[in-house]
């Protein structure tokens, strides 16, 4: 081997070693990621793809061997379906009600508990508790609370207005549903906001106070802008969760003790995923149900993109890009 060749050979050996090390690191990385990757591929990506294929067929859950391709028929049908339109309208109303109020409540609770309060640990636990109660249990709590014949809510109102008999789940179903959803999500959002608040350096607020800012001005002009990425996150997550709501309206249906095909919630709480559930499990229209869900997916994607596009105007990341 010539002297000139030695450095080249040495560099080649280093390159091979570097490549091997990189390959090993990549392999290790993917090995650790593989449980999630396999789970995502099998339990999310594959069902999504199958559902997309299904949405172009007349699959009814039993005719896999004789399934027929129907093109865009399920999608055109969904766009003309008055029940789908009604369900979508009710879902959007729920979204525009629940998301802003819900995020506001979560933020207010977090701001409250960020103060030096007595029993703040106890309050934190109490506010967080609804978040860990299973949805069925939570729905039961609210059904009992709003029961016309002995529910706590009517009893409390009855102190001021005797003989009050309000059938909350019949007369105000969407109000009860909205409050239930906000109540159930408040604790989880509060914890995320609290984490965000604790990530804001205290000196920013102290500097503003030294400059004469009032507590409200500190919150409005220092805390909220610095918290805006967390607010943005909560809004996006809230929008997605509300559009996908299914269990809560069904469980709040009077006389219903569980989720089953054929359960019909009050018309005002007839939501989009519930309509898809009926299409699939009551009418056995798996293809049509899948088309409805893909339309919902497109809507979720669209709204999320709109939120991301508008976030530049109100979300402050500290370092402007």
């Amino acid at each position: 081997m010539s002297a000139a060749a030695r450095p080249i050979a040495g560099s080649s050996v280093r390159a091979v070693a570097w490549r091997r090390r990189s390959a090993r690191r990549a392999l290790t990385f993917y090995a650790f990621l593989s449980p999630w990757l396999v789970g995502f591929a099998l339990l999310t990506a594959l069902p999504l793809a199958v559902a997309l294929l299904m949405s172009f067929t007349d699959y009814d859950g039993f005719n896999l061997d004789r399934v027929g391709f129907v093109g865009l028929e399920n999608y055109t049908r969904a766009l003309a379906d008055p029940d789908a339109q009604h369900a979508l309208q009710r879902t959007l109303i729920l979204m525009v009600t629940v998301v802003p109020i819900g995020v506001g409540v979560q933020l207010a609770l977090a701001l409250l508990l960020d103060q030096r309060l007595r029993f703040s640990g106890l309050l934190r636990t109490i506010f967080y508790l609804p978040h860990v109660i299973p949805v069925v249990g939570g729905a039961w709590v609210w059904k009992l609370f709003t029961d016309p014949n002995g529910g706590l809510l009517n009893a409390i109102i009855g102190i001021f207005s005797p003989d009050t008999y309000i059938r909350w789940l019949v007369e105000y179903p969407t109000v009860v549903l909205s409050v239930f959803v906000i109540w159930a999500a408040a604790g989880g959002g509060m914890v995320i906001f609290l984490a965000g608040l604790q990530g804001i350096p205290a000196e920013y607020r102290e500097a503003a106070m030294i400059d004469g800012a009032s507590p409200w001005q500190v919150t409005r002009f220092v805390t909220l802008p610095l918290l805006s990425p967390v607010i943005f996150f909560q809004v996006v997550v809230g929008v997605i969760a509300t559009l996908q709501i299914l269990q809560q309206p069904i469980l709040l249906t009077p006389g219903i003790t569980g989720i089953s095909p054929g359960t019909v919630p009050p018309r005002d709480n007839y939501v989009f995923v519930g309509h898809a559930y009926n299409a699939i499990f009551v009418n056995h229209l798996f293809g049509y149900g899948a088309a409805l869900l893909w339309i919902l997916f497109a809507l979720v994607l669209l709204l999320t993109l709109v939120l991301f596009r508008t976030s530049g105007r109100w979300v402050f990341y500290g370092v402007q890009q």
Binding site: P261, G262, V264, P266, R267, Y270, N278, V282, N283, H284
Partner: peptide, 17 residues
């Protein structure tokens, strides 16, 4: 040609309005 819940579901859905 229809499921056992189909009629009742429709009945309940339209009865309220």
């Amino acid at each position: 040609y229809i499921g056992e819940e189909t009629f009742a579901t429709s009945w309940k859905k339209h009865l309220e309005p």
